[in-house]
């Protein structure tokens, strides 16, 4: 009985991963792409792991799946954060239609202070 539920969960997870890939292609700049990639891949992977846990029915596999899930939940946004910050400090520009950039303004201010 639990196997169809597990497979459905895995299917939904793959579907979200696919949406993330579409976002990766369609969105305009690094930061927007990271947004799509991080959120969908986190939920997609978590759903796949939950599906594995539900479908397998073995306690050891379930514990491992849940540990992997917790690690993904911590590591994935951390990696996105590191990538976004790294991209910005290497000078990757925001999309030209972006409406505001407080980060750039504040970094610019610090630069001026140092120059003065």
């Amino acid at each position: 009985m639990s196997e169809p539920i597990g497979i459905t969960l895995i299917f939904i997870g793959v579907l979200f991963d696919l949406l993330g890939c579409i976002g990766l292609i369609r969105l305009p700049d690094v930061y927007n792409r990271l947004q799509a990639a991080t959120k969908t891949v986190t939920l997609g992977t978590c759903l796949i792991l939950t599906g594995v846990a539900v479908a397998s029915g073995t306690v050891t596999i379930q514990i491992k799946a849940m540990l992997a899930l917790a690690l993904v939940l911590i590591a994935s946004p951390t990696a996105a954060h590191a990538l976004a910050r790294g991209a910005y400090s290497l000078g990757v520009k925001l999309w030209e239609k972006s409406v505001v950039d407080r980060y750039g303004e504040d970094l610019g201010k610090e630069g001026e202070d140092e120059a003065a």
Binding site: L19, L27, D29, L94, K97, G104
Partner: peptide, 13 residues
Amino acid sequence: RVLHPEMPIKPGI
């Protein structure tokens, strides 16, 4: 946002 044909985004930091 990704599937919408016009992609309604208004990004910024």
